[in-house]
Each structure stands twice: as structure tokens, then as C-alpha cells.
Amino acid sequence: MENKKNQRRDFLKKAGLGLATIASVSAFSSPLPTNEEKKRLAMIVDLQKCTGCGACTLVCKNENNVQDGVFWANKICKTEGKFPNVRYDYIPTLCNHCDKAPCVKVCPTQAMHKDENGITMHDTEKCVGCRYCMVACPYQVISYNGEKPHKRWRSEEKLMVGTASPKELNEKVGGDTIPYYNPERAETYPGIRPKNVVEKCTFCDHLVKKGEKPRCVQRCPSKARTFGDLDNPNDKVVSLLGKHSPFRLKENLGTEPKVFYIRNFNPGKYPR
């Protein structure tokens, strides 16, 4: 009897020690980033500066090797009213990198996750392709790769007799799947995302890590986009947000989006 008691005590002691070791190892193995490293990156889109040229969409496609039919940087266009009282709205959209991102919450495998800068990132190795994130996202900015990406560039069919097929053209310029392939993208995320997973804007995290700004911010011809850290009081985004009355898309859902819009035309006259 006594022997059994001792055995039980030994077992409990060992189990306790084991748990304590596991807890301490896990606590030290993944140190949280310090406050200095941590940022809350956000983007501001000035709607009075934005001309709706679509350059952001194009450069995003080039930078991130985005395939046909998929848009990481997109837009909402709507026309309201009847002539002569017509109102045309053009709102550029992209992943809002919400503080309380519904896609991160619903993803069963943590493929959608937050990085140290508050960017909502996606891991193609973990993605099961359930598309729950697409259903849960209120901004419709997540796309699904239903087929092998860049199918058009794999085609051997010539558009006209005597011309090169897309595949030949690609081989001629030495492109990787596509002639305009950007290898820089593959530094933090697969250069071209595979079939059967979702993909979305990453705030060009590969550039951000090098201290650069996202490509859409760099290439906007009217400089309508501003990018920076919300936690840095000296950052331009903080001063712009203080200067104007910004709005965010679907704020009522409590997702805390980090893409702000300022200087909308007639903001008070037409409720959104």
C-alpha cells in the first residue's frame, strides 16, 4: 500500500517537473518582440488625391506575381442617383489588416495569422483551402486559387500564325512561369501561390522588412497613399489621421481595419 503511495507521489512529482520544463522551454523559445520592434502598420488613402487610375492594382500584380482574375489591390465603384444629380464613388480596396481580423479568428489551421507588425499574413503550407476566411471577411479581399496559377502563360497555343505562344515567349525571356516574375516576392511568401489555397495582400511585407513602403504606396502617381506606424506619434499617418476625419469600411463590425480613408467628397451629404 505504502509502496503504491510512493509510486504515485513519484509519478506526480515527475509529471509536475515535466510540465514545468515544457512550460519554461516554450516560454523562452519564442520570445515576444519588444515594444521597439513591434509596429502597428496602417495605410491611409486620400480620396481627393486618388484619380482612380488603377496603377495600384497594376503594380501590385507585378510586384506580387498575382495571376489573372485575382486582385490583391482592388476597388469598389458605384454610381448613385439620376442625372443631373449623379454621384460616382471610387474607393480603392485592399486587405485591411484588421486588428481583430475575422479571417484569423475563423481559420482552423492558423494559416491566417498576425505578424509582429500587425500585418495579417497567410501561410500557404498550412492552408487547407476551406475558404472560411473568404466567407468571414467583410471586405471581400481574399481570393482562392481554384486552378493552377498563370494558366495562360503555360499555354502552347499561338494567338496568331507566325507568333510565339505564351509558353515560348516566357521561355524566350527566361521567366519563371511568367515573363515578369518578381523573385523578391518569394523572400517571405511563395513567389507564386499554388493551386487550392487562398491568397491576399500582405502590405508588401517583403519590402516593409527592408524598411521600404508597399509598392502601391511607392508607385501611386498622385501620392494618394500614405503608409506608416500608428504607434509612432511622429509618423505621417498619425498626423494625417489627426488632421482629417477618417473613415474605415464597415466599422460597425468591430474588426478595427487599418486602412483609413480621408477627404471623401461630400462626406456628410451622402451617408455611407
Partner: peptide, 27 residues
């Protein structure tokens, strides 16, 4: 039939888990 990677889906409750996802509990 619906998910993109069914084999990965089978691992959801065992290896890959997000306890804030309803999908995790349902799997």
C-alpha cells in the same frame, strides 16, 4: 470535395489547430 487540401484538413484537430475557430471544434 469542397476543401482544396483534404489531407491537410484531416490533420486539423490533431496537428494544426486554432481554438478560436468554430471549424476546429466541428472537425
Amino acid at each position: 470535395a469542397d476543401v482544396g487540401n483534404p489531407i491537410r484538413m484531416m490533420k486539423v484537430p490533431i496537428i494544426m489547430r486554432n481554438t478560436s475557430s468554430v471549424f476546429f471544434y466541428s472537425s
